[in-house]
Design a binder for these strands. Sequence first.
DNA 1: TCTCGCTTGTGAAAGGTAGCACAAGAAGAT
DNA 2: ATCTTCTTGTGCTACCTTTCACAAGCGAGA
Lengths: 215, 215
Amino acid sequence: MARKISDSTVRRLSRYLRRLRTLDRQELKVVSSRELAESTGTTAAQVRKDLSHFGSFGKRGQGYGVTDLRVQLEEILGLTRRWRVAVLGVGRIGSALLGYGFFTQRGFDVVAAFDTDRSMIGRDVAGVRVQPLKELETTFEEQEISIAIIATPVEAAQKAADRAVRAGARAILNFAPIKLRMSPGVAVREMDVTLELEGLCYLVTEAGAATDVKE
Amino acid sequence: MARKISDSTVRRLSRYLRRLRTLDRQELKVVSSRELAESTGTTAAQVRKDLSHFGSFGKRGQGYGVTDLRVQLEEILGLTRRWRVAVLGVGRIGSALLGYGFFTQRGFDVVAAFDTDRSMIGRDVAGVRVQPLKELETTFEEQEISIAIIATPVEAAQKAADRAVRAGARAILNFAPIKLRMSPGVAVREMDVTLELEGLCYLVTEAGAATDVKE
DNA sequence: TCTCGCTTGTGAAAGGTAGCACAAGAAGAT
DNA sequence: ATCTTCTTGTGCTACCTTTCACAAGCGAGA
């Protein structure tokens, strides 16, 4: 397992898992690479290639055992343990995340929330008490938090992320519209709604332009 | 401009634009491909390659005019017009999106919101009245809505998206954790927080495993 | 036991994307 | 006017990702 697995492969694995969990809940026993591909928007060959990087989990002529493959993928992705998460910035996005019930169900426990706004501090948001930033270090250590979600305004994002990493965070999920500079050991993913919307605009505009040419 | 531009290129263009807007606000006049690369997490060659697909916007020896390049990118991405957006599903995510002030600033007007929940209908959320689903078709037409944001529970997502498309939407931003099946002409982007968190877990777990091997 | 139908796992080929390296060009100094 | 310095735009190369195609393997049925 020394090989470097590409980001796109990991993303697909996560999609397969999402699908497998649904199938498992529906008590389906077996699934083929073709079925899995159709319901996750890829090809059967791609599914098999992706899985083959980690071993062979299927039975030829049959397909994959749903529960078995789910468990395998959970192990591969590192989801056999629970992960402790903190939210930095309890504005609209932060609040929405704190109330997002699926986290618990998927193995993520949001155990802390921080904000600088005096009027927010001490409040209870979806069962989590909002703490002042100065308590960040002790809380990260005590609660063994390894993932920080940055939901601060853009100006505060870099500092918040740096501080979280210094306090022990090993991964950052960034909702602020800025590229965070992080040391190589820290995993970062960015979520920016505007970026996605702009991407959609390009596609729509291009599609329109293409039809214009045809006509 | 007949060439097919890859998704990753479009994503980067959007990042360049995000950065250029900041630089423009700071009244910087000129930016080099190297500077742009550093602040968006790519390489100078990549920036130049990306831009070269659409023309040559820079001056050799100097760099790119900030305002000029910003405008050029806005044109390329189709952001010289305003886009009308509807939110389907006014739960936690939907509400957070309705209150997200940056949309207006970036050219997106959220002009409608829909929900099936009786207790939500008629309410005013961040200046938008929540409408019942049965008004979807007329509102989409009257308001000329071209982008639908799906923020419903997962069970309702596919139907909501289908209905939006039939009513005239040409692009879907999907927050529900499911792969939407759409006809080829419709642009879809997916945002799934859990998916991103799982990706981070893989990276953290792998990094941990890698260090274990070294030691 | 043998055959048939089906699906996996994988080497090889194709297709794309990113990086390198340098000629072309622009501005300012001498 | 020439030289120096800097940065763009781009052909070429290297790498990486996806797709193809088929042998290997499994189970069911005769």
